[in-house]
């Protein structure tokens, strides 16, 4: 049994999102305990990415509350919230192509003040099967290898909540297995995962929420 590192909970109460003049979804309610997984499903444009970005406070919400351990994160402008989650964007543009895999991770390790960063970087690279490519410039990586590196960055952050936008994109079967293992370890440690994906990963106790306009979800 893995050591439990995290014990936070996350719950949503009647969250709504408006982009432009369009109501994407409303009355979204769900709750996640330590070790919980929430899969966001829904048609293209249903607001899956927007919901992930609202949790990261990278997008304003139209209504509702999101409670972290009972405290509404949408009201208090607390920069410390940014240490609680790791955000995986749907594309991997934000990797610096001139840098090696290790240099890319090292930058974020310093930025996030990761202790023992060299060992943590090696562990994250190994977890996504990138050890042999650690010192290769990212510019020669394939789409799947870039995705693995972005996921290694999520593992590196060692934070309670993973916000993953299409984590399975471009991954081969071996990488999907590695990601599932990494996710299982994260959950066993008491972490939480929210992911927007059309895949149906085989994870125990996974909740699925269907996002759709004007509909009560989850």
């Amino acid at each position: 049994m893995a050591k439990r590192l995290f014990s936070s909970t996350l719950s949503f109460a009647d969250v709504a999102c408006i982009r432009g003049n369009r109501l994407l979804f409303q009355n979204f309610s769900a709750s996640l305990a330590a070790g919980g997984v929430l899969r966001l499903a829904g048609a293209n444009g249903a607001g899956k990415t927007s919901l992930l970005r609202i949790v990261a406070r990278a997008l304003p919400h139209a209504a509702g509350r999101i409670l972290w351990d009972g405290v509404n994160i949408l009201e208090n402008e607390n920069i410390a919230h940014n240490a609680r989650f790791a955000f995986l964007p749907a594309d991997d543009r934000d990797l610096k192509l001139l840098e090696t895999a290790r240099e890319n991770l090292h930058f974020w390790a310093v930025l996030w003040c990761i202790e023992n960063s060299a060992a943590a970087i090696d562990a994250a690279l190994a977890a996504m099967g990138l050890s042999s490519l650690a010192d290769t410039p990212v510019r020669v990586f394939s789409a799947g290898q870039k995705r693995r590196l972005s996921l290694a960055r999520i593992i590196l952050k060692q934070c309670p909540l993973w916000l993953l936008d299409e984590p399975f994109n471009a991954l081969d079967d071996a990488a999907i297995d590695l990601l599932s293992q990494a996710m299982a370890a994260h959950l066993a440690a008491g972490g939480m995962v929210m992911m927007a994906t059309h895949h149906h990963p085989d994870i125990k106790n996974m909740q699925t929420a269907h996002l759709a306009a004007a509909q009560v979800a989850a």
Partner: peptide, 15 residues
């Protein structure tokens, strides 16, 4: 900004 790094920077605990 163009490659999305700025987004991730602003979502980091650094002010």
């Amino acid at each position: 900004y163009a490659d999305g790094t700025l987004d991730l920077l602003l979502l980091s605990p650094l002010s």
